[in-house]
C-alpha cells in the first residue's frame, strides 16, 4: 500500500464527509432550533439534484443549474414549512415522523410522475473535468477536490453566520429558549421559515453536487438521510460543530473501512472470502462506531 493510495482514500473520506455535513447541518439546525425531526430532508436533497439536472440540460450550464438547485430546494423547504411543518412544532416526535414520512412519499411519487423512473445524468462542468496530480505520485479527481472546497467554505460560512450575525444570534437564542425569544418580540415564525429554507438549500446544494458525480434519480435522498442521521446522533443533536466532526468521522470511517477491512482480512482468509466478509463488515462499521460512541457519550460528542 502506497502513500499516494492512503492520501487518495483520506481525500475520498473527506469528500464523503463534507457532503454528509451539508445534509446534516440543515437537519441538526432544524432539530436544534425547532425541535423537529424532518425525515423529508432527503427529498430536499433530491429536489436540488433534479433542479440542477433539468436546468443544466436546458441552459447547458452546470453553474446556472447549481444556483437553481439552491433556489428550488430553499423554495420547496419554505413552502413545506409554511404548509405542513408549522403545524407540527407543538406535536410530539411521532406525529412529526409520520407527517414528514408522508412528505417523502409525496415528493418521491411526485417526481416519479414528473420525471419518470429512469435516472438522469448530469455532466461535470468542463472547468472541473479530469484529474490533478497529488504528492506521492498519485492523482485525484478535480471535481471531488472542488466538492471538498465547497463543503469547507460552507462550514466556515455557517460558523460566521451563527456566531457573528444577528440572524445567527436569533438562531442561538431559539436553540436555548424558544418561548423567551418569542416573548422578546422576535418574529419566531419568520425565523423558523428562514432556518428551514437555509437547511433545505444546503441539502439541495449537496444533491446537485453529488448528482454530477453519481446519478439523479427518485429515492436518491433516503440512503444519504440515514447516514446524515447517524452523523447528527454521533455529533450531538442540535450542534453544528458536532455535525461537522461527525460527518468527517463517518465519511472517513466508511471509506477507510471499505478499503482496509477486506485488505486486513485477506491476511488470514482467502482473497475472495476476505472480500465478501470485509465488504459486509464495512457496511456495518459506522453503525458499530455509532453504538460505541453512544455507549460512552449517550448524548453524542458535542451535545448541545
Amino acid at each position: 500500500m502506497s502513500t499516494a493510495l492512503l492520501i487518495e482514500q483520506l481525500l475520498n473520506g473527506l469528500q464523503l464527509g463534507v457532503m454528509l455535513f451539508l445534509m446534516a447541518a440543515g437537519l441538526t439546525l432544524i432539530f436544534g432550533v425547532m425541535g423537529l425531526i424532518n425525515l423529508a430532508h432527503g427529498s430536499l436533497y433530491m429536489i436540488g439534484a433534479f433542479a440542477c439536472a433539468i436546468v443544466a440540460s436546458a441552459t447547458g450550464s452546470f453553474w446556472i443549474g447549481l444556483i437553481a438547485s439552491l433556489v428550488a430546494a430553499a423554495a420547496a423547504g419554505a413552502i413545506m414549512e409554511v404548509l405542513v411543518i408549522r403545524r407540527l412544532y407543538e406535536r410530539d416526535h411521532l406525529d412529526q415522523v409520520l407527517a414528514t414520512f408522508a412528505l417523502i412519499l409525496i415528493f418521491s411519487e411526485g417526481s416519479r410522475w414528473l420525471f419518470g423512473s429512469f435516472a438522469l445524468y448530469l455532466d461535470i462542468p468542463p472547468l472541473l473535468q479530469g484529474a490533478v496530480p497529488l504528492p506521492g505520485g498519485g492523482q485525484y479527481q478535480l471535481y471531488r477536490l472542488a466538492v471538498i472546497g465547497v463543503g469547507i467554505s460552507v462550514a466556515v460560512g455557517l460558523h460566521v453566520l451563527i456566531s457573528r450575525t444577528r440572524l445567527g444570534m436569533r438562531i442561538r437564542a431559539g436553540e436555548s429558549d424558544r418561548e423567551m425569544i418569542a416573548a422578546l418580540g422576535i418574529d419566531i415564525q419568520t425565523l423558523y421559515t428562514v432556518v428551514f429554507a437555509l437547511g433545505a438549500a444546503l441539502a439541495g446544494l449537496a444533491g446537485a453536487l453529488v448528482g454530477a458525480l453519481q446519478s439523479v434519480q427518485v429515492g436518491m435522498g433516503e440512503p444519504v438521510l440515514i447516514l446524515a442521521f447517524v452523523v447528527i446522533v454521533i455529533g450531538g443533536i442540535g450542534s453544528i460543530k458536532g455535525a461537522l466532526v461527525g460527518a468527517i468521522l463517518v465519511g472517513t470511517i466508511d471509506t477507510m473501512g471499505r478499503f482496509l477491512l477486506p485488505k486486513t482480512l485477506a491476511l488470514i482468509l482467502p482473497a475472495s472470502q476476505a472480500g465478501m466478509i470485509g465488504a459486509a463488515l464495512a457496511s456495518m462499521l459506522i453503525y458499530i462506531v455509532m453504538a460505541l460512541i453512544l455507549a460512552f457519550r449517550p448524548r453524542g460528542l458535542f451535545a448541545a
Binding site: L5, N12, L16, Q141, Q214, T255, P262, G275
Partner: peptide, 16 residues
C-alpha cells in the same frame, strides 16, 4: 478482488 454494495453509487474508494 473487490465486492461493492448493491446499488452503490460512489466508487471513489474502489477506483483509488
Amino acid at each position: 478482488e473487490i465486492y461493492t454494495q448493491v446499488g452503490q453509487t460512489d466508487y471513489a474508494a474502489e477506483i483509488a
